[in-house]
Design a protein around this nucleic acid. Structure first.
Length: 439
RNA sequence: GGCCCCAUCGUCUAACGGCUAGGACAGCGCCCUUUCACGGCGUAAAUCGGGGUUCGAUUCCCCGUGGGGUCACCA
């Protein structure tokens, strides 16, 4: 005899704003858990609050999930399930578990008639996968509202009905829902429904250790994509927020996560969202990209020379940063901002007892570079020039070369510069430098 | 405030009740070096406090403290 090990989880966001990383972290955990159990993961848009729900937010959710690669087996909107909600409300009212309540509206848009759940009181306990046994006295909840009318369910009723109808076995959600759970269990019982397994995840925290929110400056997930964060990196970082593998390995691919994730190792306390670490993880995955793929993300196709690409891989933490770097370099190397050469700076590494060393070195380098084939890489250029630099003194040779090429005290190394500028332009610039030399 | 949850370096975290409390990010330092980076090496940095239980508590129990969540006709 085998029990059918059936697992189904869901991500149930409400489309009332752009969701941030904390929201998607729960989606990541739900997805990983379902998939590694051979189960299903579904997306349900919780749009029962029609006044605040917007299509553009729903689109953003779909887009974000696609970006993260969290495919879902089913898509639905809570508003499509009103029939089931109505039937459930009717059933509760008929059985006496709920009642239509006449009241004086406290706010302008409040109804004079709502449906309240008749709270039986007592202590509700449930076993949370993350937190263990949780119990709460529901008496002080009073007779809570479950619907504004037979066709307008409130969150708690709708969630319970939808999860049951969809056959959700594990509800994985943020800890902010933990105190909602007892009242949802109450509704389940009154409806004769099974209680799913709950796993309440620790919250993702803002810098002040309070719940991450847009108000606290949390970015929408899609903003990170626009900044040039890789999906793989975001997934990796999100998984590390409140979870950690057995060993010290922190760079985990999608496949690694699928193989290694487990709810047992989920942390109980909240985790602060650290953008710096996200960017560091992103840099790791950016470097792991092939040159071709890297170029594609940069949006400059194959036009990007290997020397520039290497420069980006060395320095950039995001593709936005890489693009900025290229733009800045372009402006600095070719733009109107190219400063005039300063003779003193050109000769700053010149040994004081060799007043014509700079002229001599640049003149010799000119010869070496002239003999270089066209379009060679930085590595080859280095191989050709380095022996001379080593022989004559690296600083005395390479500093004036680099300065002559870049007109800047700080820049990429001279070999990379020659590769970027091209042989002819490099020669021109060295000639220009020689021209201002008085000795 | 009521109820609920939580507590290891600045941050994310590791440590069957048993090594010198480990790693990563960020810091700092050194090396590499033609500058800025990259890289390599190293360093500083934590078990909230008090009681228990135990031969032995980061780990288990209690109290305190601190932090967070939640208390809607939002989700």
């Amino acid at each position: 005899m085998t029990t059918i090990a059936y697992t189904k989880t869901r991500f149930a966001p409400s489309p009332t704003g752009l969701l941030h990383s904390g929201n998607y972290r729960t989606a990541v955990f739900s997805y990983l858990f379902a998939r590694q159990h051979g189960g299903q993961f579904v997306l349900r848009i919780e749009d029962t609050d029609r006044a605040r729900s917007r299509k553009e937010y729903e689109d953003n959710i779909v887009e974000s999930l696609a970006w993260l690669g969290l495919e879902y087996d089913d898509f639905s909107r809570q508003s499509e399930h009103v029939g089931a909600h109505r039937a459930a409300i009717q059933k509760l009212v008929d059985s006496g578990a709920a009642y239509v309540s006449q009241e004086t509206p406290k706010t302008p848009d409040a109804r004079a008639e709502v449906i309240r759940f008749k709270n039986p009181g007592g202590v509700i306990s449930f076993a949370d996968v993350v937190r263990g046994a949780v119990s709460m006295d529901v008496s002080d909840l009073g007779d809570f509202v479950i619907a504004k009318g037979f066709d307008e369910p409130i969150f708690h009723l709708a969630v319970v009905v939808d999860d049951a109808d969809a056959g959700i076995t594990h509800v994985i959600r943020g800890e902010d829902h933990i105190s909602n759970t007892p009242r949802q269990i109450l509704i389940q019982r009154a409806l004769g429904l099974e209680t799913p397994v709950y796993a309440h995840l620790p919250l993702i925290l803002a810098a002040d250790r309070s719940k991450l929110s847009k108000r606290k400056g949390a970015k929408a997930l899609t903003e990170y994509r626009e900044m040039g964060v890789l999906s793989e990196a975001m997934l990796n970082y999100l998984a590390l927020l409140g979870w950690h593998p057995e060993d010290d390995c922190e760079y985990l691919s999608r496949a690694d996560l699928m193989a290694r994730f487990s709810l047992d190792r989920v942390q109980k306390s909240g985790a602060m969202f650290d953008e710096t670490k996200l960017f560091s993880v992103n840099q790791h995955w950016m470097r792991a990209l092939s040159d071709a793929a890297y170029g594609t993300y940069l949006g400059r196709g194959e036009a990007i020379p290997p020397a520039l690409l290497q420069l980006c891989k060395d320095k950039a933490h995001t593709f936005k940063e890489a693009q900025d770097l290229l733009t800045k370099l372009n402006v600095e190397l070719y733009g109107a901002l190219l400063p005039d050469l300063n003779e003193g700076t050109l000769r700053v590494k010149e040994p004081s007892d060799q007043p014509s060393a700079t002229r001599k070195h640049l003149t010799h380098l000119l010869l070496l570079i002239e003999r270089l084939p066209d379009d060679v890489g930085a590595a080859t250029i280095k191989d050709v020039l380095m022996p001379y630099a080593d022989q004559e003194g690296r600083a005395a040779v390479l500093w004036p070369l680099r300065y002559a090429l870049s007109h800047a005290e700080r820049s990429p190394d001279p070999f990379t510069l020659i590769a970027i500028l091209g042989k002819n332009e490099a020669l021109n610039r060295i000639h220009k430098a020689l021209a201002i030399l008085k000795e």
